[in-house]
């Protein structure tokens, strides 16, 4: 460790995480409310779209735009079985990343960007209704989902869905969204262990 930050960077101390500076040294820092630093949590809470990247069978990354949902601990994404290739990939290789990059799709000031790496699991134990546990989080971002759900008869397979649960292990934050400057790097798993 290169040093310790005495005061929390964000209010509401909860867990300790490792922060590496852009040169690669790790700083001790106190995390706020949830698992992730507050600026990243704020992004997750408002973002209407994120990019979920999975690794396919040949080792190539495959990126899918999806709504990210967050409960302070786990990032949830849901996928219809109509678009379930990503679920097959995650089952074969649980390493994923979720990035939030679109300034139009987030409501935070000042704008920032983040990428979270983590380990994902697929909950497809009840495709018909299991995903409804994340419906309250989904509804906050896309109120029209209730209207679509009311027309379930018209889109029966769209509402057969799995839940992807991502447990963050590392996060990258670009404070002003500019990726021509190095990000802050948060080693979450190491500190949590």
């Amino acid at each position: 460790m290169a040093g310790t930050v005495a005061a929390p960077r964000w209010p509401g101390a909860a867990t300790t995480i490792g922060l590496r500076d852009p040169r690669g040294s790790t700083l001790g820092i106190v995390n706020p409310v949830g698992i992730l630093p507050e600026p990243i949590e704020a992004l997750l809470e408002t973002a209407l779209v994120s990019e979920l990247t999975v690794v396919d069978g040949s080792g190539l990354p495959v990126t899918h735009p999806l709504i990210p949902l967050y409960d302070g601990e786990v990032i949830y994404l849901t996928s219809s079985i109509l678009f379930s290739k990503k679920l097959e990939h995650i089952k074969a290789n649980p390493k994923v990343s979720v990035s939030i990059s679109d300034p139009v799709a987030v409501d935070v000031e000042p704008f920032r960007r983040a990428t979270i790496q983590g380990d994902a699991t697929v909950d497809d134990s009840d495709l018909h209704a299991g995903w409804e546990r994340v419906l309250p989080l989904w509804r906050k971002k896309e109120p029209a989902i209730d209207m679509f759900l009311g027309k379930r008869v018209a889109l029966p397979l769209f509402f057969e869905r799995a839940v992807i649960e991502v447990r963050p292990t590392r996060a990258f934050l670009w404070d002003d969204g500019a990726t021509d400057r190095p990000p802050q790097v948060f080693e979450l798993a190491k500190a949590m262990a």
Partner: peptide, 20 residues
């Protein structure tokens, strides 16, 4: 589109995506 996101697999085997 306004921006691109480059996704690749890092040394730890995790995908990583960066906007640019």
């Amino acid at each position: 589109f306004e921006h691109a996101v480059i996704a690749f697999v890092d040394d730890d085997g995790y995908p990583l995506s960066v906007a640019t």
